[in-house]
Computed example of a mutant assay.
Amino acid sequence: MAHVYYTLPNLRYSTLARFIFFADAVTCVTLWLTGGHTHYMEDMIIHFKLMESVFELACLALLKLCILFFVFIKLEKLAMEEIEDPYNPKRKRNKTLLHVFTILLTFLSLAYTTTKGVLVLVNKTYNEVDMHSTYIACCIAAFAFSLIEFLLCLLYPVFLRKLKVFRIKHQLNDEGEEVVEGENGQPKKKKANLGRVLSLVKL
C-alpha cells in the first residue's frame, strides 16, 4: 500500500508574513531600548506618558508576534486539512473566526499606531513634545509594520486557497523509491533510505 503525505515549500506566503512579524518586534524593541539610558526607560514605564514613550509600541509588536505567528501556522494547518476534508463545518467556522481575529487585531494595531504617530509628529512640530529621535523612528516603524501586517492578513485567504497547487506530494512507490511531485507537477524520484521509509510507515 502506497504511503502519501504532503509538505509545503519553505519559501511561501506564511513564512514571509511570520518573518515580518518577527522583524516588527525586533525593530520596535530595539528602537525603544536604544532611546535612552536605563533610568530614563524605567521612568517612561513607571510614569508612562503617551507623547513621550514608545514602551507600549514595543509591547504591542511583541504581542502581535506571539499571537499572529502561531495563528498563521494554525490557519495554514486548517487549510491543508480542508483540502482532504472540505465538508467539515466546524473547521470552516474555526478558520473564518481565526482569520477575522487576525484582521481585527492588525486593524486595531494600525489604528493605534496611526493615532499615536499623528499626535506625536503634530506635537513635535509645535515643540510641545521632546521625544528622542529613535522613539520617533519607532512610531514610524510601528505604523509601517502595522499597515503591512493588516494587508497581509487581508490577503492571507487568497494564498490559503492556493495551497492545493503549492503543496508538494511525497509517495513511496512499489520499487521502494520516494516520488516527489513539485509545484510544476513533474515527479522526481528519490531513493528511499531507512529513515525515509520508517517516517512514511508512521503516517
Rank of each mutant, 00 (worst) to 15 (best):
G36Q: 06
G36T: 03
G36K: 08
H37V: 03
T38W: 15
T38I: 13
H39C: 02
H39M: 11
H39G: 05
H39W: 10
Y40D: 09
M41H: 14
M41C: 09
M41R: 15
M41T: 10
M41L: 15
M41G: 05
E42C: 12
E42G: 11
D43N: 15
D43S: 15
M44A: 07
M44P: 01
M44Y: 02
I45R: 15
I46Y: 06
I46W: 07
I46G: 03
I46E: 10
I46K: 14
I46M: 08
I46A: 13
I46Q: 11
H47A: 09
H47Y: 14
F48N: 13
F48D: 13
F48Q: 13
F48L: 10
K49E: 09
K49R: 15
L50R: 10
L50K: 08
M51R: 04
M51N: 02
E52K: 12
S53R: 04
S53I: 00
S53T: 08
S53N: 11
V54Q: 07
F55P: 02
F55W: 14
F55S: 09
L57W: 00
L57V: 03
L57N: 00
A58W: 02
A58R: 00
C59S: 08
C59T: 03
C59F: 08
C59A: 09
L60R: 05
L60V: 13
L60G: 05
L60M: 13
A61G: 05
L62G: 07
L62K: 02
L62E: 01
L63Y: 11
K64Y: 14
L65K: 02
C66E: 03
I67V: 15
L68G: 07
L68Q: 02
L68R: 05
F69I: 04
F70V: 06
F70S: 05
V71C: 04
F72A: 05
F72I: 05
I73M: 14
I73L: 12
I73H: 12
L75S: 03
L75H: 02
L75Y: 07
L75A: 02
L75W: 06
E76W: 14
E76V: 04
K77S: 15
K77F: 14
K77H: 14
L78T: 09
L78H: 14
L78C: 07
A79V: 00
A79D: 04
M80N: 10
M80Y: 11
E81R: 10
E82L: 10
I83P: 09
I83S: 07
I83F: 12
E84F: 07
D85C: 03
D85Q: 08
D85L: 02
P86S: 06
P86H: 06
P86E: 07
P86N: 05
P86W: 12
Y87T: 01
Y87C: 01
Y87G: 00
Y87W: 12
N88D: 15
N88R: 11
N88G: 08
N88C: 11
P89H: 09
P89E: 06
K90Q: 10
K90L: 08
